[in-house]
């Protein structure tokens, strides 16, 4: 009896060790949205998915850091990031393996790496959530520095999440000097800082602030729950910079232990079906494949003026401006 108990205990302690017929995926996309997709993949292929999800506490970068830690001894096969900047950081660190998925065909090359180490799919856009009672409304990101809107706006902490990516994209697009001048004016204009895009959206929904730059899924969720808000795509006029697009990104890990299954999951995530599912889900992501039906509240990518940036450049800028952003916040 005692031996049986001992064997049971030992077999419990080795749970989690690598298994054939499985694929290990690290996921930065919110679990509520990514888990159903991975479950469908399991059902359709019979391949067991072992997922490790990020939490809001780690500012959605915890699993990426685990990938960096495991570089010499990779445990993951696939990384599903909720934005492409991290993919670029991992590419620069030599953690990714190239893979040209047949399902990547039809996705604009702006949303793919040139060496096939990552590929974008289902995107969010950065837009303004605006309270319905707001008298003056913003139409450009530059309106954060508009004195007529002093104290009316809020933005998520630019040290974390998509706010960092967006500010880095602004630095790439505008150049350092102009971007810093804008940041300074924004500070003078008494723009509030929130802890997350979700909190920014809540502040606007409650009327505490008139507007906030958030991800489209944050705006849609408030709109769908009947909050008195609307949204505005910034910088859509001629010669304006356009809206910043944040696609998901999928990548294959170099040295993946289950590379065949990993490629199947890679293809699955890039499929039109997955994009359609993510469009219908509460995260309301905009498909990058043409012809896939998107969320009814949002315009398709082809109908938007998109900010033309090189994500590799944005990733480099993001690392570079971290000390500046810390200083900017502290002042």
């Amino acid at each position: 009896m005692s031996r049986i108990i001992l064997i049971c205990l030992l077999s419990f302690l080795t749970l989690g060790a690598s298994q054939n017929g499985s694929v290990t995926v690290y996921v930065s996309q919110d679990q509520v949205f990514s888990e159903p997709i991975l479950k469908d993949f399991e059902k359709e292929t019979g391949i067991k998915v072992k997922a490790l999800y990020d939490s809001e506490e780690s500012k959605s970068t915890g699993v990426m850091n685990r990938l960096l830690a495991e570089k010499r001894n990779p445990q993951a096969d696939i990384y599903w990031a909720n934005e492409p900047i991290r993919a670029e950081i991992l590419r620069n660190r030599g953690i990714l393996a190239p893979y040209k998925s047949p399902n990547a065909k039809g996705i604009d090359k702006v949303f793919k790496s040139s060496d096939n180490t990552w590929c974008g799919f289902s995107a969010r856009v950065r837009l303004f959530i605006v309270h319905k009672d707001a008298i003056m409304k913003p139409y450009s990101v530059m309106d954060y520095a508009n004195s007529a809107l002093e104290g009316k706006g809020v933005i998520a902490n630019p040290l974390f999440g998509t706010s960092t990516s967006h500010i880095s994209a602004l630095f790439t697009y505008l150049g350092e000097k102009t971007a810093k001048a804008f940041m300074k004016k924004m500070k003078i204009n008494n723009i509030a800082i929130s802890t997350s895009n979700g909190e920014s959206a809540d502040f606007v929904a409650s009327g505490k602030y008139d507007f906030a730059l958030v991800d489209s899924d944050d705006a849609i969720s408030r709109l769908r729950s009947g909050k008195p808000v609307e949204f505005i795509y910034p910088d859509q006029k001629d010669r304006q910079m356009g809206v910043f697009v944040v696609p998901n990104a999928v990548m294959l890990i170099k040295g993946a232990k289950h590379s065949t299954n990993a490629k199947k999951l890679f293809d699955y995530l890039l499929s039109r079906d997955t994009e359609a599912k993510l469009a219908k889900a509460d995260c309301a992501q905009i498909p990058l494949h043409k012809g896939v039906e998107g969320p009814k509240e949002l315009k398709s990518i082809s109908d938007l003026r998109v900010m033309q940036v090189d994500y590799a450049q944005v990733a480099k800028e993001m690392v570079k401006i971290q000390p500046y952003l810390k200083d900017w916040l502290a002042k």
Binding site: G16, T24, L52, Y53, S55, D282
Partner: peptide, 24 residues
């Protein structure tokens, strides 16, 4: 648990924390 759990073996307290990101 959140720092060290192996993929696919999250516990309920960890699951709740990950659901807090945009979960209903």
């Amino acid at each position: 648990t959140m720092l060290v759990y192996p993929p696919g073996y999250e516990t309920l307290p960890v699951y709740i924390v990950t659901q807090m990101a945009n979960g209903k």
